[in-house]
């Protein structure tokens, strides 16, 4: 059974539909890619799934439970964590304290310090652990956001452009990390513009364009899908 099920989600801003009857799912142990051109509605869908935005219609189920009307904090307690397209670090806190806040809110609150030490080690953040978060380069900041999300021990992880600002080597390391998270049983949904990363790590890819899902399938199918190519490159 899918850990995350989104069905018929519509978000309207005035007369415009940012999302139009969108459905998608994510399963444990798998990485689901969510791609699409700028303005396709990917981050809006993340906002709906994480509870930051109420959909005009549609449903979100998490682990088989209806969570559409729950706020973001309650959804987090059902195992959801996310990162943001626009960095949302706790800028005045150190990297260590960013992770500590999350760990103290999660199920490992009694061993929060230990949990933070593990994540710092896992993500290679030791050099910047005591730096204020708002002094970090964007790539490192995104890694801290991933670490912060991991600190609440999620079962479903939503990553919004986590590799932006990373160089080739860092992206490779990040891909390995994603695979290991999925191998541990986590469901990962990845919004990313780095197609190399998406195609190499995702088990399934959903393509959004103008608020609608235009294609779903394994990476090798999506790569050659005419509709997807048209959405990215134009019909001409």
């Amino acid at each position: 059974m899918a850990l995350l099920e989104v069905s018929g989600v519509t978000v309207a801003f005035g007369g415009n539909r940012a999302l139009d009857d969108v459905g998608m799912s994510a399963e444990q142990g798998r990485i689901t890619g969510l791609i699409g051109p700028n303005g396709a509605g990917k981050s809006t869908l993340f906002d709906v799934v994480s509870g930051l935005r109420r959909p005009s219609s549609g449903r979100v189920r998490l682990g088989g439970r209806e969570v559409t009307r729950l706020g973001p904090a309650r959804r987090s307690r059902h195992g959801l964590a996310r990162t943001f397209q626009r960095l949302e670090l706790f800028g005045r806190l150190s990297v260590r304290d960013n992770l500590l806040v999350a760990a103290e809110l999660g199920p490992e609150r009694r061993q929060a310090e230990h949990c933070v030490a593990r994540i710092i080690d896992q993500l290679g953040l030791a050099e910047v652990a005591d730096s204020p978060a708002d002094t970090l380069p964007t790539g490192v900041g995104r890694l801290v956001e991933v670490g912060r999300a991991l600190a609440v021990r999620p079962t479903l992880l939503l990553l919004d452009e986590p590799a932006a600002g990373q160089d080739g080597e860092e992206t490779e390391r990040f891909a390995t990390l994603l695979r290991s998270l999925a191998d541990d049983g986590m469901a990962v949904v990845l919004v990313e513009h780095d197609m190399g990363l998406v195609m190499s790590v995702c088990d399934e890819v959903h393509v959004l364009d103008l608020g609608k899902v235009i294609a779903v399938g394994p990476p090798e199918v999506i790569r050659n899908d005419e509709t997807v190519l048209a959405a990215y490159l134009g019909d001409a």
Binding site: G51, L52, P72, E88, L89, F90, R92, A102, V152
Partner: peptide, 16 residues
């Protein structure tokens, strides 16, 4: 301080 710096991030981590 976390709440001040980003309410959205604080809430999505389970903060009330």
């Amino acid at each position: 301080i976390a709440l001040r710096d980003s309410e959205a991030a604080y809430a999505t981590l389970g903060g009330n």
